[in-house]
């Protein structure tokens, strides 16, 4: 019962966020529970992780850049899941939370010298190639938009979730809807450009 209440609370808070907060980037892809034009559910299934990682504490309250942990996003096709020593690099020194159950679990993995078996949340079909680097370089580095917004186009506002959940459809029609938009080249000009429209750019 308690778990259900908690789920409902998370749901509600997400709903409120999507409806009211920063506007466009988080609304795009349809409201939670809705379907996109091509019939995909905007909201993905709940993925239970080995440790209920609180994104809201790290990226939300602490304001850590997404790319501090998902470090490959800016220079590779995949964003990457941080290695255990990335977690330990900080948590070894943070005494105040050391006896929390989640951190205890973290230390268990560390002492066992085992990686945490994180589960994939944003899973694209095998015939699609998505490149994190190009999107991050274009919108974060070139256009200098806030990181929470740039990652949020596809991942939703992860900084308000605990473990991540897919909130965008990640379907082809949804990708194309953004590629068709006229995006400003950079903050200084009025020149715009679109994302690539060629099949082979994404299909392999």
């Amino acid at each position: 019962m308690k778990v259900r209440m908690k789920n409902i609370l998370v749901w509600l808070s997400l709903l409120v966020l999507c409806g009211t907060a920063t506007g466009e980037p988080f609304v795009q892809g349809g409201a939670i529970g809705s379907q996109t034009d091509d019939g995909y559910n905007a909201l993905g299934p709940v993925v239970e992780q080995p440790i209920e990682f609180p994104h809201n504490t790290h990226a939300g309250q602490m304001g850590i850049n997404c790319m501090y942990c998902h470090t490959y996003a800016r220079r590779s096709a995949v964003s990457g899941i941080p290695r255990l020593d990335k977690c330990m690099g900080c948590h070894k020194l943070i005494e105040s939370v050391k006896d929390k159950p989640r951190i205890k679990k973290l230390f268990e993995y560390w002492e066992k010298k085992e990686p945490i078996p994180w589960k994939k949340v944003h899973d694209l079909p095998d015939f699609v190639r998505f490149n994190h680097e190009r999107h991050i370089q274009r919108f974060y580095f070139r256009e200098d938009r806030p990181v929470r917004e740039v990652c949020g186009y596809c991942h939703g506002d992860v900084a308000s979730m605990t473990t991540a959940r897919r909130v965008k459809a990640l379907s082809m029609g949804w990708c194309v809807s953004c590629h068709q938009k006229d995006h400003l080249e950079n903050a200084a000009t009025t020149k715009t450009s679109n994302g690539p429209n060629d099949c082979w750019q994404c299909h392999k």
């Binding site: 096709a77 082979w200 392999k204």
Partner: peptide, 17 residues
């Protein structure tokens, strides 16, 4: 034959960055 388009795409992405 695709002219190894996976290699071309990767090289193009790197060059664009």
């Amino acid at each position: 034959c695709t002219f190894c388009v996976q290699r071309l795409t990767e090289a193009k992405n790197r060059a664009r960055t």
